[in-house]
């Protein structure tokens, strides 16, 4: 089941991916033979009810968790063959993350948080790019503040900037607006949209929120560990409609 337009290269992909928790009676199939790919330069939303496996899929794609069977690829690299060290380097260089909460290191300033992945890898910061990113997320005046001195929306913008700073192949976002009020959430989503449309980033976002999903180019629906549907160029009404169907 491939749904990608042949002209686009996959930034990340899963092939017959299965993830099973527990054993025998208590066995839970979080992912059940999922095959899906995510095109470069696209903003994809993954949706599904709680327990559908959407977070597990993302964790496995990002090299944070391992599959029970099947394969995942980031930029053509098979993650199953990688050591912890190689996975670390992959996360540092090819992957960016935005989490729902607790996204920042509390002891570092906003700027230090943004450049942290680069610093960890000993990579020089591309100052021009960093300025662009900081400008895009409107954080110029906040760079020397600690996370505790920032609002939730500002903290999340720092997280977006951090994900963008290393120009990763792909950014994974896990309910990035889940903890924000709707205005801050809309801001974050607009930045992410901007990053894809204008800066050529690839973003995969897990979300519950049909409004958030409407910012994406494509929505993939998961239920019971399987890919069950997808929409391209969605509107929030379409998404809501599909969700209702899945829920019934």
């Amino acid at each position: 089941m491939t749904s990608t337009t042949p002209t686009l290269v996959a930034a990340a992909a899963a092939l017959n991916a299965s993830k099973i928790y527990g054993k025998d009676d208590s066995e839970v199939r979080a992912l059940d033979d999922v095959t899906v790919d995510f095109a470069e330069g696209q903003f994809t939303a993954i949706m599904g009810p709680s327990g559908s496996g959407k977070s597990t899929l993302m964790h496995c794609l990002a090299g944070l968790d391992t599959l029970t069977s099947g394969k995942v690829f980031v930029d053509g690299t098979d993650l199953s063959g990688l050591s912890d060290r190689e996975l670390t380097v992959l996360r540092r260089e090819q992957v960016g993350f935005i989490f729902q909460a607790y996204n920042l290191i509390p002891t570092l300033t906003a700027l230090e948080n943004i450049t942290l992945p680069l610093d960890l890898g000993g990579v020089d910061v591309d100052q021009a790019w960093l300025n662009d990113v900081v400008h895009a997320v409107k954080l110029e005046s906040r760079l020397t503040h600690r996370p505790s001195e920032l609002s939730g929306g500002q903290q999340q913008r720092v997280a977006v900037a951090r994900a963008l700073a290393s120009r990763p192949k792909i950014i994974f976002a896990d309910e990035p607006t889940g903890n924000l009020d709707s205005r801050s959430g809309a801001e974050i989503l607009a930045f992410m949209r901007h990053a894809v449309s204008d800066l050529g980033q690839t973003i995969v976002m897990v979300t519950h929120d049909p409004v958030a999903a409407a910012y994406a180019d494509r929505v993939v629906f998961l239920a019971d560990g399987k890919v069950v549907d997808e929409i391209t160029s969605p509107t929030s009404e379409q998404v809501l409609d599909r969700m209702k169907k899945l829920g019934s």
Partner: peptide, 16 residues
Amino acid sequence: LRELALLRAIGASSRQ
């Protein structure tokens, strides 16, 4: 725990 895991997630090696 979360802070350390976050560091690991964004690319800190276990050695670091």
